[in-house]
C-alpha cells in the first residue's frame, strides 16, 4: 500500500513538473533560449490563483484568470526581453532571463510581501478513498485530472488541427516550417502564451498542495525544470513528459527510502546525473 501511495504522490508531483517543464521545452525548441524566468511565471500563477480565489471564492475562475493573465505576460516577456536579443548569442538571452527571474522574485516581495500568501479557505481538502484504504485528497485528484486534460487537449491540437500541426512542425524546425508559409513570429507568441499559461496552472496546483505561495517558490522549480528538460532530451515534448513523471516518482520514493542521506531536491539531480551517464543524449533523443 505504501508503494502505491508513493506512486500516486509521484504522479501528482510529476504532473506538476510536466506542466512547468513543457512550457520551457516549447520555448527552448523554438528559440533555443533557456527561459529561466519561466519559473517566475509559475510563482505569479500561484499568487494570482490565491488572490482571485480569496476574492471570488471560485478556484476554477481563479485558475482561468491566472492562466490567461500569465499567458499574456509571457507574450510580453518575449516581445520586450527576448525578441530584441534573438540575433545575439544564446548566452545574452540567458543572462537577460536570469535577470528577469531575480527582478520578478524581488517584485513579488515588494508587492505581495515576503511572508507569502495562503488560501483563506483552502479548497478541496477532503479525501476520497480509491479503494483498499488508498486515500487521496480531492486537490491531488484535481491536479492529475487537470494535467491529463490539458495535455490531452494539447496533444489533440497538435495532431488533429492544422494550426496545431504547423505549431509542432515549427517547434521542431522553424527554418523549414517558414519555407511552407508558416508565420514563425505568430507561432512564437502562441508558444509563449501556452507555455506561460501552463506554468501558471502548475503554480496554482502547487499552492493547492502546500497552501502557501511565497516569492522564492520558483527557485527550486526553475532549476528542477531545467534538469527535466535536459533529461527529456532538450526540445522533445514526449521526453519532457516522461522525464517529469520519472523525476516525480523518483522523488516520492527517494524521500522515503533514501531521504535520510539525500535531500529531496537533490534527488532529481542525482537521478539526472545517473540517467545522463547511461543515456548522454537524454531519455529521448532530441530531433
Amino acid at each position: 500500500m505504501l508503494a502505491l501511495d508513493l506512486l500516486l504522490q509521484g504522479i501528482v508531483q510529476g504532473a506538476i513538473y510536466a506542466l512547468i517543464a513543457l512550457g520551457l521545452t516549447l520555448i527552448y525548441g523554438l528559440l533555443r533560449i533557456l527561459h529561466v524566468a519561466h519559473a517566475a511565471l509559475f510563482t505569479l500563477g500561484g499568487y494570482i490563483g490565491v488572490i482571485v480565489t480569496n476574492q471570488t471564492g471560485s478556484l476554477a475562475f481563479a485558475l482561468v484568470v491566472s492562466m490567461v493573465l500569465v499567458g499574456v505576460l509571457g507574450i510580453l516577456i518575449y516581445r520586450v526581453a527576448y525578441k530584441p536579443l534573438l540575433g545575439k548569442s544564446p548566452l545574452v538571452a540567458l543572462i537577460a532571463s536570469i535577470g528577469l527571474f531575480i527582478a520578478f522574485e524581488e517584485g513579488f516581495r515588494i508587492v505581495f510581501g515576503s511572508y507569502g500568501l495562503s488560501f483563506e479557505d483552502p479548497p478541496l481538502r477532503t479525501q476520497v478513498d480509491l479503494g483498499g484504504g488508498l486515500l487521496i485528497s480531492h486537490s491531488r485528484l484535481l491536479i492529475v485530472g487537470m494535467a491529463v486534460v490539458i495535455l490531452s487537449i494539447l496533444a489533440w491540437l497538435s495532431t488533429r488541427t492544422r494550426t496545431g500541426i504547423a505549431w509542432k512542425a515549427t517547434v521542431t524546425d522553424p527554418q523549414i516550417a517558414s519555407s511552407f508559409g508558416i508565420n514563425i513570429e505568430r507561432v512564437r507568441y502562441l508558444n509563449f502564451f501556452i507555455g506561460s499559461a501552463l506554468a501558471a496552472a502548475a503554480g496554482v496546483m502547487v499552492v493547492l498542495l502546500t497552501n502557501l505561495v511565497e516569492p522564492t517558490m520558483g527557485a527550486v522549480a526553475s532549476y528542477k525544470a531545467l534538469a527535466i528538460i535536459v533529461l527529456g532530451g532538450l526540445g522533445s515534448v514526449r521526453g519532457t513528459l516522461v522525464a517529469a513523471l520519472a523525476i516525480g516518482i523518483v522523488e516520492s520514493f527517494g524521500t522515503v527510502y533514501i531521504g535520510h542521506i539525500l535531500d529531496r531536491d537533490a534527488l532529481a539531480f542525482a537521478f539526472l546525473v545517473v540517467a545522463l551517464m547511461v543515456r548522454p543524449q537524454g531519455l529521448f533523443k532530441a530531433d
Partner: peptide, 15 residues
C-alpha cells in the same frame, strides 16, 4: 518533421 506523421508532414507542406 520527424515527430509528425507522414500525413501531417504533408499537411504542413500544404499549410
Amino acid at each position: 518533421f520527424p515527430d509528425l506523421s507522414v500525413e501531417n508532414n504533408l499537411t504542413v507542406g500544404g499549410h
